[in-house]
């Protein structure tokens, strides 16, 4: 248990955290903005990487590869959206169906293999775990990931301030009211799901480059990590009043904190095989806390308190 070992591992955890931070922003859009639990991301978190790596192996530039990965994610979101809105399948089940289907599709994309490696020496990658230390700052994996987050947050901040973005927020906040104000709530849900899954697939593309391979199991439990990031971001930075951009930033930092904590528990001697159990417990606890707090530790309302009229 040398502390040096931990310190050596932290920059890598940080970079990975920021990459998953992008993914968590995608989850935030469905879970918080649209008020939907979308499990499609467990599939898209592998699809994006598969598409990105295979595109690059076939000679396309990294930017084209990431763009196509983003579009592939949107397509997955579209499928879930249609299953949910047009076919009336509950959102969670719709997501599970797409996710399951994606497993086969991801294998097809990766030409039947469970993973596809890409060499950082032979291909022009944007981000790699080899570039965490000892490279110029503009090549540093953390810098690249943060740059992506900044651009994505800027675009989302603009988008959710537009008429269309506002109607998506309204749909998540109160679908009944939204329809009464002439908003096509089904369309808004579909657009939100597409956007969310596109971002998740983009994160997946970066994540695969970072690790040097795409993996059909890359997305297993992704939703839990995404939720953990959203919740940690909310708990840690929730006291600070900030605008929408700040909230998204808090979510991405939530992912970083999550990966830092993982690194610490690994350093403390937890086996990496136990990590998924650990993640599940962490998220379960954080989701339960607000409910239990309200149920058992609610402060009694003072008599003669503030009138509600």
């Amino acid at each position: 248990m040398e502390i040096v070992k931990l310190f050596n591992a932290l920059p890598g955890a940080c970079a990975q955290g920021f990459i998953w931070g992008i993914m968590a922003i995608g989850v935030y859009i469905t879970y918080k903005v649209l008020d939907l639990a979308d499990l499609t991301v467990d599939g898209t978190m592998a699809t994006g990487g598969a598409v990105c790596i295979l595109m690059m192996l076939n000679g396309h530039s990294v930017f084209v590869a990431l763009l196509v990965a983003f579009l592939a994610g949107m397509l997955a979101g579209l499928v879930t959206g249609i299953l949910h809105t047009a076919m009336g399948i509950p959102a969670i089940l719709a997501g599970i169906l797409t996710q399951l289907g994606l497993y086969s599709i991801n294998l097809r994309i990766m030409e039947g293999k469970a993973n596809q490696a890409i060499s950082v020496d032979k291909y022009n990658l944007l981000i790699s775990l080899r570039w965490v230390k000892g490279v110029p700052f503009y090549k540093n994996a953390i810098f690249t990931a943060v740059l992506f987050i900044m651009v994505i947050i800027a675009i989302l901040y603009w988008f959710f301030g537009t008429e269309l973005g506002c109607s998506i927020r309204a749909t998540g906040s109160n679908p009944h009211m939204s329809r009464a104000q002439g908003i096509n709530t089904n369309l808004c849900k579909i657009i939100g799901l597409m956007l969310s899954n596109g971002i998740v697939a983009l994160s997946s593309g970066l994540c695969a480059q970072y690790q040097g391979f795409s993996d059909v199991n890359a997305g297993r439990g992704a939703i839990v990590i995404g939720l953990a990031a959203v919740i940690i971001g909310q708990v840690v930075f929730g006291k600070i009043r900030g605008n929408f951009a700040f909230k998204l930033l808090a979510v991405s930092f939530g992912a970083v904190i999550y990966y830092m904590v993982l690194q610490v528990v690994l350093w403390l001697g937890l086996e990496s095989n136990d990590l998924k159990l650990f993640s599940a417990i962490i998220v379960a606890v954080f989701l339960a806390i607000p409910y239990l707090k309200g149920k058992y530790f609610a402060k009694p309302v003072k008599k003669g308190g503030a009138s509600r009229a």
């Binding site: 301030g161 008429e163 973005g165 104000q181 002439g182």
Partner: peptide, 17 residues
């Protein structure tokens, strides 16, 4: 209020308010 003002209009990428 801005949502209500746009009732019956196509909602695009113009600024929401």
């Amino acid at each position: 209020l801005a949502l209500a003002l746009r009732r019956g209009k196509l909602r695009g990428l113009r600024i929401g308010i």
